[in-house]
Amino acid sequence: MTVLVGPADATGPTGRAGYGNEHNEGDDMVKVRRWFPSFLFVLPSIILIGIFVYGFIGNNIIGSFAMVRTRSGRIKAPGGFQNYSSLIGDPRYQHALWNLLVLTVTFVAGTMFFGLLWALLLERGAKFEGLFRSLLLFPMAISFVAAGVVWRWLLSPATGAQAVGLNQLFQMMGLGGLQSSWYSAGRFNMAAMAIPAIWQLSGYIMALFLAGFRGISEDQREAARVDGATEFKLYRYVLFPQLSPIALSALIIVGHMSMKMFDLIYSIAGQSSYTAEVPATLMWTQMFQLNDPTAAAVNATLLLLIVAVAVIPYLIYTNRTEKGVH
C-alpha cells in the first residue's frame, strides 16, 4: 500500500513549497490551481467511464425491469421484480449458480495454494529462479480462448481404448484408475473446469506473493533468527502476517475473474452445454440465442450484485487501511 501513497506525497507539498506563502490573499486561487490541472487530466476518463461503465450499468438495470410482450401478445417478461423471481426460480439458473460456486471455490483455492507454494519455493532460493519464474508465469500470456482449444482436447471424457488427452496420458503412465469424465459428468464437474484456470493464473498469484516477500526487509528475518525463531515460526509470525493485504488482493482478483469467467468455458464446452453452464455463459445464450435481452439483463444485474458482494467489502477495507497510513 505504501507504493500507492508514495508518489502523491512526493509531488504534493515538496514540488510547490513556498508558492503559497507569497500569495496569501489568493489562497483559494492556489487551491484551484492545485487541483484543477489534475482534474482536467482525469476528466476524459471520468466522462468515458461515466458513460461506458456506469451509464450502461444503469441502462442494463433499467432494462432488466422491462415488461416485454411479443407481437402475438405472449408475455415474454412480466416486468418489475417478477423478472428477477422468475429467473431465480428457474432450475436452469440455479444449476448455473451451483456450477459457479463449485468453479469459484476450486479455482480460488487452487490458485492461492499453488501460487503461494511456488512463491515459497522460489523465495527459499531455488536455483534458476529467473527461469522458473518465467516458466510459471508464461501460461498467463496465453488467452483463455487459445488455451481452451487445447484443454478441450486434454479434458476429453473418453476413457479406455478411445481415450485422448489427460486420460490417455494417465493410461500410458499406468495410472488408468485416475481417468475421469472431467467436466462432462457429475455434480462437482465444474471443479475440472477450474484446472485450466488454475494452470493459467497460479503464476500470477506467485508473482504477487513473491513481490510481497521481496518487500519485507532482510533485517526482520535476521532479527527473528537472532531471537531464536525457527524457520516455521519466522514464516508464521513474521512474514505471513505482512502478506495478508497481498493475499486479500489476490483473493479478490481471482475471485471476481472466476465469477465472470466466460471465454474459457465457452471455448472448452461449446455453445449449448448445459453441463458446464454458469451465469455468464447462460447470459450469452439468453442474449444471442434465446433472443431474450430482458432475461440477460436480469442475469447480468444479478452477476454484478454477486461480484459486488465480494469486491465492495474489499474496497472499504483498503480505503480504511490507506487512511490508517496517513
Binding site: R92, S184, A185, Q271, S272, S273, Y274, T275, E277, T285, Q289, L290, N291, D292
Partner: peptide
C-alpha cells in the same frame, strides 16, 4: 425452428446426454 427454440432443444439434448 427459430434459433431460440433450437437452442432450448440443444440444451435439453446436452442434459439428456448426462
Amino acid at each position: 425452428v427459430p434459433l431460440a427454440w433450437s437452442s432450448e432443444i440443444n440444451t435439453a439434448m446436452s442434459k439428456f446426454y448426462q
